[in-house]
């Protein structure tokens, strides 16, 4: 019985490291906690087993899931210039390419893209809204403003370089974090 539990420990821990999805890793960690609680029980330490089962398998799992949920929504502001509003060319295919590429990126990273078209200035968006990216197009160059705490920046840069369909000229502007 003990050997089975120990082998289960090995399997779940390796699976938690090797899986591609964070959500699966959290579930594997919960399984790991249950298995190690069982091992503690077999080693005649029921007190530790109860603590491990309650904390590792319930509270830590829910905390991780809430943390994943907090980072799930990826808010993209598409800032429209004044001349873009009148002729509605921003809905044409050339500019929708960027949106499609970003949505593909979000699906790949298990995020939920939320795209908001806005005509506020960048400073107003920065001050008043929660955002991950702000996109604007000035004279054919796409300028992407990135939130300082955006932890997906490296992945986004690598993805945009590898994407063949995306041929726009673009510039990524990371925002300096305010040191209050």
């Amino acid at each position: 019985m003990l050997e089975i539990a120990l082998i289960l420990l090995l399997i779940t821990s390796v699976a938690a490291i090797q899986t591609r999805y964070l959500r699966h890793a959290v579930i594997y960690l919960g399984l790991f906690s249950l298995a190690i609680a069982f091992v503690y029980l077999l080693y005649h330490a029921p007190d530790v087993a109860i603590a491990e089962a309650v904390i590792g398998s319930t509270i830590a799992t829910i905390l991780y899931l809430v943390a994943l949920q907090k980072y799930k929504i990826f808010t993209i502001y598409y800032r429209l210039q004044d001349e873009e509003i009148g002729d509605s060319t921003y809905l044409s295919h050339s500019k929708q390419d960027l949106i499609k590429v970003l949505e593909k990126f979000c699906t790949k990273q298990e995020l939920e893209a939320q795209i908001i078209y806005s005509k506020e200035t960048i400073e107003a968006i920065k001050a008043n809204h929660q955002y991950a990216l702000i996109i604007e197009e000035i004279k054919g160059v796409v300028r992407i403003t990135v939130h300082p705490e955006n932890y997906k920046l490296d992945a986004l840069t690598a993805f945009l370089e590898n994407e063949r369909r995306f041929k726009h000229a673009y510039a990524i502007l990371p925002v300096e974090e305010d040191l209050l």
């Binding site: 029921p46 007190d47 087993a49 109860i50 603590a51 309650v54 904390i55 319930t58 509270i59």
Partner: peptide
């Protein structure tokens, strides 16, 4: 088995 800490959790 158990006690204050485990029951509190």
């Amino acid at each position: 088995p158990g006690g204050g800490f485990q029951g509190g959790a």
